[in-house]
Design a protein around this nucleic acid. Structure first.
Lengths: 247, 247
DNA sequence: CTCCCTATGTGCGCTATGGCGCATACCTGT
DNA sequence: ACAGGTATGCGCCATAGCGCACATAGGGAG
């Protein structure tokens, strides 16, 4: 069974009134998003905004010495390329596909045309941006105060929320890059979780076995961000209804 | 000598075309911002946006266990209350006056009226928001990878940039709260800087003696954020000219 | 079936930072 | 001048995370 692709799988697009969506549809271009693809390099002038549907994209900051840290992560609840409508068209961070999948992209010109014609898209885009700011803020706080163990739980939960399944294709090395810690630190933290029976992993594949227990171990940051996304972007229900109708 | 107050001391207001500024002027209310005042509590529904002129305001996140961490800091280059025009009217963080001074505030209703009448203000407000996102992102990265020493340098430089002088009224205890580290950690880091002759401090007053050397010790985060602010908000020169004309 | 590459596991010492308790010194108000 | 509070200094130990070196193991390619 092949998954059918549709722009409505992205919540931001699904939240648009039918007329606005119809106007945008011809400009939406399905695009495969392979693992590791740099959707946007730091300081790149972006020509498109990207709407993930089945992929997950991480915003990463790469330091001068090569060390990295994840700033935020976006799946089908949002978009990549906030700077395009915030007034600039670049940021100092890099966007990397963390989980392969698909998405749609929209030319910057089409985006601006749509913003000029109707305020709905703009409105949702700004709400998403505010939610993104919350996520970034919480990342800052979490980096300061919480252990690798807790951060791994947070990272797993956030990734699961953005996929439909309980299985992630992801090496510990990559997770370490995201969290900005040593690979061994991830090995140790993941080992604890596996010993406790919460997850199972093997050679680049992680399966979550006991999500409720993961939620017990995670720091408050996870809930804060989730709550804020739900508050600011309460379109999840609508999305599912529309997606069901499309299928 | 008393400092005369004027809304144009705030760069965002100074960047407005004369007509837009004139329309806003009657609604701008001068307000004293004493040290430690919570301009906005977390999850507070905001009724005003605040434009610092001579004050500095920190965005703080307070954790469940009481630990805190600074997310970003804003002086007369920006405003407090981004959520008001991003679509919501609250955030999970708290805004605290870090350096006493003055500012102007504007009712949410007047803000929205202005946005409807002209896009200039909106445009600058969004650019500022993007710069703020960069600052928050860099805070996240800095928290992950840099030492307390480096972060103290960053904090001092960012504070100096937002004041006109080289003297900060600030205890090490408060700095520790901002950075989210132990007070003793700040004592130690500040001690090193004082021993090296870069700063002098005594009971809640810090004087920067050798700014160039501070810039040598600071991590890359400081420059990244500064560059981004200069790129996105290149109105500093204009501001000074206007401010000079007003005086 | 075998080989090799890559992912994971482990051990060791090191350093930065946290937690705690307490000493000191300075400023301010009376 | 004095007292009291507050800001700063310091020591001690615990521990999380880093850097490094290397061992092991699973799984795909031939």
């Amino acid at each position: 069974m092949t998954t059918p692709h549709h722009p409505l799988q992205n919540h931001l697009l699904a939240a648009l009134p039918a007329a606005d969506f119809a106007r945008l549809l011809p400009d939406l271009e399905l695009i495969a998003m392979p693992l590791g693809w740099a959707v946007c390099e730091s300081s790149d002038h972006m020509a498109y905004v990207y709407f993930p549907t089945t992929s997950i994209v991480s915003l990463l900051y790469i330091m001068e010495d090569g060390a990295s840290a994840e700033i935020a992560v976006t799946g089908n609840e949002g978009l990549i390329g906030v700077s395009l409508f915030m007034g600039s068209d670049s940021t100092p961070s890099r966007a990397i596909v963390q989980s392969a999948g698909y998405g749609y992209r929209l030319k910057a010109s089409a985006l601006k045309r749509e913003f000029a014609l109707s305020g709905h898209f703009y409105h949702h885009a700004l709400l998403f941006t505010q939610a993104l700011m919350t996520q970034i803020s919480q990342t800052a706080v979490c980096n300061r105060h919480h252990s690798v163990d807790q951060q791994l739980c947070r990272w797993l939960l956030m990734s699961m929320d953005r996929l439909r399944c309980d299985e992630l294709v992801m090496t510990q090395e990559l997770i370490a890059n995201m969290l900005g810690v040593r690979r061994e630190g991830v090995t140790e933290a993941a080992g604890k979780l596996q010993a406790a029976g919460l997850i199972h992993y093997s050679r680049g594949k992680i399966t979550v076995l006991d999500r409720p227990q993961l939620e017990k171990r995670v720091c408050e940051c996870y809930a804060v961000v989730k709550k804020e996304f739900d508050r600011l972007l309460p379109d999840h229900l609508q999305t599912r209804l529309v997606a069901a109708a499309v299928r």
